[in-house]
């Protein structure tokens, strides 16, 4: 893996540097909503800052971001609203601090979900990635902290990874602005339907669970045809989550 120097990339005709405008907090009249999701302390806020030109506080500890920050950028005439979500380990957990992120990923219907992962801890981070891929087909993997992975002597075959996950993979080192132009380009292509994903679906789900999910989600879809992820609601129901039972009754999902 190699990270292209910023100048070379921005000079490349593929990336239209003139087409990029960092809009800061000006989030009016956007065309697409992009959510930044990922495990805690993978550098979401740093990616967010690099893309919007904002200075959202960052820190080297899990849980630094507790509120949802919003920013915007414009690329080739499209305005993107970017949401920096607090870190979350799993969509299956019920912890309160992860609720903001969980709800938005599940019900906020973002145009594109950027999943930021720590390249040195890919296996652990994939837990969340695979969960998110169950519920959306417009996602890009931002393989962040590549500089650290290199120092740890890790070699990551991004093409194989992209093929296995079925979504584009962009290696970045957001702290040094490396890979950010490629990420923006990829987000834009995803939003405009130029890239179509075939996201990985979890293969190792035990048969009996799979069947139960299938049954339940079919029922749910009959009552709520517009819901983006009935499978996940089915999962929560199987776990006996009281909140989801309540939301199901009221129909207020966000």
């Amino acid at each position: 893996m190699e990270v292209k120097p910023k100048s070379a990339c921005e000079a490349c005709p593929q990336f239209n540097a003139d087409g990029l405008k960092k809009l800061g907090v000006n989030t009016t009249d956007f065309d697409f909503v992009v959510a930044l999701a990922g495990n805690p302390n993978t550098g979401k806020s740093t990616v967010f800052n690099a893309m919007t030109g904002l200075r959202q506080h960052t820190g080297n500890w899990p849980g630094k971001t507790v509120t949802r920050a919003e920013g915007a950028f414009e690329y080739n005439g499209d305005k993107f609203k970017l949401l920096d979500l607090p870190g979350t380990y799993s969509l299956l957990s019920t912890s309160e601090d992860e609720e903001v992120a969980r709800n938005f990923i599940l019900f906020g219907k973002p145009s594109v979900t950027v999943i930021v992962v720590d390249a040195s801890r890919l296996e652990r981070n994939l837990n969340l990635v695979l969960q998110i891929l169950e519920i959306t087909s417009k996602a890009v993997l931002c393989l962040n902290l590549m500089d650290e992975a290199e120092r740890n002597n890790l070699e990551i075959d991004t093409r194989t990874l992209a093929r296995d996950l079925g979504i584009p993979v962009v290696p970045t080192s957001a702290r040094y602005n490396r890979g950010i132009p490629e990420l923006i380009q990829t987000i834009s292509e995803l939003a405009n339907g130029k890239i179509v994903c075939k996201p990985h679906r979890i293969k190792n789900i035990p048969q009996n669970i799979e069947q139960a999910l299938e049954k339940l989600s079919t029922e749910i879809e009959q009552v709520y045809p517009d819901i983006p992820n009935s499978r996940w609601i089915a999962l929560r129901l199987l776990e006996g989550d009281r909140n989801i039972i309540e939301t199901l009754k009221t129909g207020e999902f966000v």
Binding site: N127, N153, I156, P206
Partner: peptide
């Protein structure tokens, strides 16, 4: 379910991540 997800993750990582040697940060 969690085991299922982790099994998938392990398979994917096996194919795409290689460690050059044991020393590191």
């Amino acid at each position: 379910l969690a085991e299922g997800i982790y099994a998938d993750a392990a398979e994917i990582v096996k194919d795409s991540v290689h460690k050059k040697d044991e020393k590191g940060a």
